[in-house]
Computed example of a mutant assay.
Amino acid sequence: MTLLAHDRYCDEIAHQVGLLRAVVTSGADLSATVPTCPDWSLERLVRHTGGALRWVELMVRTRAQEEIEEEEVPLGTGPQEKGDPVALDAWLAETGEMIVATLREAGPDAKVWGWAGDLSAGFWARRMTHELTVHRADATLAAGLPYEVAPDVAADAIDEWLQIVEWAQRSLPDDPARELHRPGGSIHLHATDGTPEVNAEWVVDLSGDVISWRRGHEKATVALRGPLTAVLLAFYRRLPLDSPELEVLGERELLEFWLERATFG
């Protein structure tokens, strides 16, 4: 597994912020419920996402060696105006410029507090790329807009999610991911539109107390097949398994077992 370049993550954060801003200014109802986050409105989702970016920006800029409380982040909850797409867009634009500039200045190796054992600015560049990738999907679903993501980013988002599940199993004794143990059980993710540049297939082995996974094409207990974007969204529980663009082959119950417990974050 090879990470994307630090500059690639920074570029993608800027790109994803721009796409999220386009949702905000599309005329979508900011009070609409987000189907994949039903406790949130579209505006609440955008404020959460921008707030996470500002929180990370402050930690990286100050080279924080311990977690900063979110309440300490200036304008971390967004503009005072409620229901105002112009104010929300301006806040989000400023947020994107801040986080990208700070991450570029820091470089990937700057020492910064992190929650998954990787104490670097590079960890946060990757994490915020995929925070945006997935929450933009939530936003587009709420707004009824189309969604696509670059293949290298989508594949890396799946890699990162598998690493997060693995970390949760090792580090969080009460997390549902600790239950992801099935002797002889395995999951194959197969993107049908993969390219030679992006090996978009994975095998996840659930035999041990902690999962193991690798990129590759192998027979498994259950396979999830479809376009890479659809596989990504289904694996993040943003797209139902019954969606027409997806195909489940083998023991569907094992895939459902995974999706019910791989819930961290």
Rank of each mutant, 00 (worst) to 15 (best):
V222R: 06
L75I: 01
P85L: 14
V24W: 05
L132M: 15
A200Y: 01
I13E: 01
L19N: 01
L246R: 04
G144V: 07
L228P: 08
S207Q: 03
A230S: 15
A28G: 04
F264M: 02
G144E: 12
D209F: 11
G208T: 06
M98G: 06
E245H: 06
E66C: 09
D11F: 04
A5T: 12
E72Q: 15
A106E: 00
P85D: 14
H6Q: 14
Q80A: 15
V24D: 06
S31P: 03
A234K: 04
R47S: 10
V248W: 03
T25L: 15
E72I: 01
R261L: 06
G117F: 13
A234W: 03
E160F: 01
L145T: 04
V73I: 15
L162M: 13
A154E: 00
D152L: 09
T2I: 06
Q169A: 11
V73C: 15
R178Y: 03
L255F: 13
A262W: 03
S243W: 13
V153R: 01
W213A: 06
A154T: 00
G194P: 01
A14C: 05
T129Q: 04
V204K: 00
G185W: 14
L233F: 02
E148D: 15
S243P: 11
T195F: 08
P38D: 05
Q163A: 10
R237C: 07
T140C: 13
G51M: 08
I211P: 01
R178N: 08
R238A: 09
L232S: 07
S212V: 13
S120I: 02
H181G: 09
T129R: 03
H217Q: 12
V210A: 10
A154G: 02
L4I: 06
E105T: 11
M128K: 00
V112S: 12
A143N: 11
V198G: 09
S26V: 07
W113A: 14
W91Y: 11
A139H: 08
W167R: 05
M98C: 02
E67P: 08
T195S: 10
Q169V: 10
F257D: 09
E66F: 13
V204E: 02
L103R: 06
G184P: 15
